[in-house]
Design a protein around this nucleic acid. Structure first.
Length: 373
DNA sequence: AAGCTAGACAACCGCGTTCCG
DNA sequence: TCGGAACGCGGTTGTCTAGCT
């Protein structure tokens, strides 16, 4: 691969930035604005790659950046969003004013991921390790709902093994039956959001492996739910040992009271990290079974009243199409099983994607333009 | 005091996407 | 329409520092 001239290792300085270099970048940006970063080193008198200049500006020098520690509210939002959309750090960062994707990514990798692991929660799948072991214990007898999960097997087992061998594992309470139906309003909602998948196993597995099984529309819906639900959360109930003690978290009275209709998802009075657990991503064999299970779950789980509220916004018609929050029908059916998740059986995959893009724009105008709070 | 280790975070790298001539 | 440059993103590596032995 030919390295761009600006990134020629021999002619550019690398490593940490000095105050003098920072000053040059700031002076240049204040005078000329951002853009055309490849020309910045020459114009600003820097022996740096333009790419490096851009990174330095966006990740550190920008005046709108926060440099203090993450608040408990921010931590919670990161975890919820990660559970919803995975490691889409730039999207997550957009919901956290003053934070960059690099900030969020580093914070996740150094703090939050570890903390989840210590709680017995797989930070990748947001499932309890015990559940992962239970799931994969069934491999010999067939995968749940016919799904193929080999792709994530190594990763999950690796995490589970890591947990078992750490000193913390003994302290992690593992219910005798695992966490059979631990699933919250949020995660249930997220998992009920439509997915676009092809009939090809490769595509399916790719999605599973990358934790990016939701299409963009579903992800945006998830973000909307997560951020708004987060704003409605009674943070007083957050265990102090979970979120940072040094947090500057505001008092409960300062919590947002401007939740939209879509956010009328009442949060549990007693917040729990179980809220971040994802139940099995594989849906029941048919929609009626799914509804039955859901009803059973709703009746059993106190914290699922919120799920009911959200699920009431998600209606499935006889064609298996889903209406979400009055929008729809979204032309995608729930997968009949874990593998053959052809959601758009009538049109082409591309057409379906285009349709859904349009729907997305209608439902979420400017979603990515500004943060939710 | 010296060496080692882990944590935190800044910076880099490679690749995919977008822009523009 | 095409190709190259620029940009953006996520994963990874490097560096510094504090704490421990």
């Amino acid at each position: 691969m030919v390295r761009p001239p600006c990134c020629d290792r021999l002619n550019v300085k690398r490593g940490l930035w000095t105050a003098e270099e920072d000053a040059k970048v700031i002076a240049h940006v204040s005078k000329h604005g951002t853009g055309n970063w490849t020309a910045v080193p020459k114009k600003a008198g820097l022996r740096r790659c333009g790419k490096s200049c851009r990174l330095r500006w966006t990740n550190y020098l920008r005046p709108d950046l926060k440099h203090e520690g993450f608040t408990a509210q921010e931590e919670e939002l990161i975890v919820r969003l990660h559970a919803a959309i995975g490691s889409r750090w730039s999207i997550i960062a957009q919901q956290l004013p003053g934070r960059t994707d690099n900030d969020v990514k580093n914070y996740w990798n150094t703090k939050l991921r570890k903390r989840l692991s210590e709680m017995g929660i797989d930070p990748v799948t947001h499932k309890p390790f015990s559940q992962i072991l239970v799931d994969y214990g069934n491999i010999g007898g067939g995968l749940p709902n016919g799904g193929t999960r080999i792709g994530s097997l190594n990763r999950d087992l690796k995490n589970a093994y890591f947990m078992l061998k750490t000193e913390h594992s003994a302290q992690v309470p593992v219910p005798a039956e695992g966490f059979p139906n631990i699933n919250t309003h949020l995660m249930t909602t997220i998992m009920s959001l439509p997915k676009i998948e092809t009939n090809q196993d490769t595509f399916f597995n790719s999605n599973i492996n990358n934790n990016h099984s939701m299409d963009l529309l579903a992800q945006l819906q998830a973000i909307k739910l997560v951020t708004e639900a987060s704003n409605c959360t009674n943070h007083e109930a957050i265990p102090p040992h979970i979120f940072s003690e040094s947090s500057s978290l505001s008092s409960p009275s300062s919590s947002s009271s401007s939740c939209s209709t879509a956010a009328k998802v009442e949060m549990p009075q007693n917040f729990s990290w179980r809220d971040f657990l994802l139940d099995d991503a594989f849906l029941p064999a048919d929609s009626s079974q799914e509804e039955e299970n859901m009803a059973g779950f709703l009746s059993k789980n106190d914290s699922s009243r919120q799920t009911q509220n959200v699920m009431s916004q998600c209606e499935f018609n006889t064609n298996g199409e889903m209406n979400f929050n009055g929008v729809g029908p979204i032309d995608c059916k729930l997968p009949s099983n874990g593998v053959e998740g052809s959601l758009c059986s009538d049109g082409s995959f591309v057409e379906a994607m285009l349709d859904r893009d349009n729907e997305m724009l209608l439902e979420f105008p400017g979603l990515l333009d500004e943060p939710f709070y």
